[in-house]
Design a protein around this nucleic acid. Sequence first.
DNA 1: CAAATAGTGTCTGTGAGACAGTATGTC
DNA 2: GACATACTGTCTCACAGACACTATTTG
Lengths: 222, 222
Amino acid sequence: MVPRIPVSVDLVVLTVRFQALCALVWRRDKPPYEGRWALSGGFIHLDEDLPAAAERILAERAGLPGAPVHLEQLQTYGYPDRDPRQRVLSVAYLGLAPDLPASTEAHMSWQPVSSLLREMAFDHRRIMVDGIERARGKLEYTPLGAAFCPPEFTVAELRRVYEIVWGRVLDPRNFHRKVTKAEGFLVPTGDTTTRDGGRPAKLYRRGPATMLHPPMLRSLKD
Amino acid sequence: MVPRIPVSVDLVVLTVRFQALCALVWRRDKPPYEGRWALSGGFIHLDEDLPAAAERILAERAGLPGAPVHLEQLQTYGYPDRDPRQRVLSVAYLGLAPDLPASTEAHMSWQPVSSLLREMAFDHRRIMVDGIERARGKLEYTPLGAAFCPPEFTVAELRRVYEIVWGRVLDPRNFHRKVTKAEGFLVPTGDTTTRDGGRPAKLYRRGPATMLHPPMLRSLKD
DNA sequence: CAAATAGTGTCTGTGAGACAGTATGTC
DNA sequence: GACATACTGTCTCACAGACACTATTTG
């Protein structure tokens, strides 16, 4: 007969926080991988669509109900031994979130990804690394860098997102020119803020564009 | 209890053939969707990794054992009603192949994708369209256009691949300059061919590059 | 005033698009 | 020879990177 397999949805939720790229994780308190960090995840229900399952797990397990998180399917991980208890197929979703408080009730916390690389359960390191690489690419050819920002943000705040996700410093003047000239990327609100000090900076919201032409290529250096 | 779901792997295998982008499909001979075209697919075995399942289905169901087909995971499709008989989760793989003979034994045939858009079973049209879009993007920033070519090919043959996949004519001289200058894309074999008529064209193999810097952007027109 | 950050302008090199011209095969 | 295709070269415009300068706030 046809083999049936348990299917879970795991979330790589990323944010930029305290000058670092962070992922939303929880610390496992029982075997296997006791004490290691794990992504939020859960089994899909029998009559549940995959995007609906991802939304449900974002709300229930990740503790971010209704939060403005961009969710997209990342990849599916299925080699038989990835969970030592039983075979589980995992459909991973990538989430890009602004700097929200982590839910203590759900026992979730934001941890810098650099500190997680050696401390994760199952194959969650691999899933997280794939998610980070996807996010880096998305910043090149979509306006999704703004998904890491609050609803209204300055060009400098957006630039710091790019710098932290790409791990490279960008020229503020050239960056400003690129993002303000990109069609549909930023919409000025008319307001300004001085929360970063210095001269008041204009505030923007995300524009209607879904793709950037031309893309914001990270240079070929390094 | 944990719900268990049948999981299949479906293949979107594409090639360029007779001046058209074609997909490898078979015609269903029983309900549901009798008479419609379908992608090759099959259920994964209990102890089988996903890439291994994709290779097996390429060999057994698609009738292309050992063929030089570039396979990569595309996306996972899981809404509950996609198969009217029972819920099946489908992990789709994208395959890029040179112009190989389709296996009559496996009842497969190459059909132009333009003729398939209204004639496919299940959600296979959606899966195929996603695969085509992925292939179009891959041609921009990877050297995978060569995966549609025989082991040795000319610049003009590669250009026709790009033209057909992107659905747009390209300037032969600018294309030649771009691909021959792209580091690691093409390796000259030293031989030439006159199979296209006219002056003999140099033959190339795929080079070691996995990414193109800078990418071969399709222009923003249309 | 100094200090800090925001924003504009200019120069330069690279590369894409457009297109002319030359090279080398077949018939 | 005509013809077909391969390949090289040149011009121009757009844009990315580098960097100087001005603008507007706080203390």
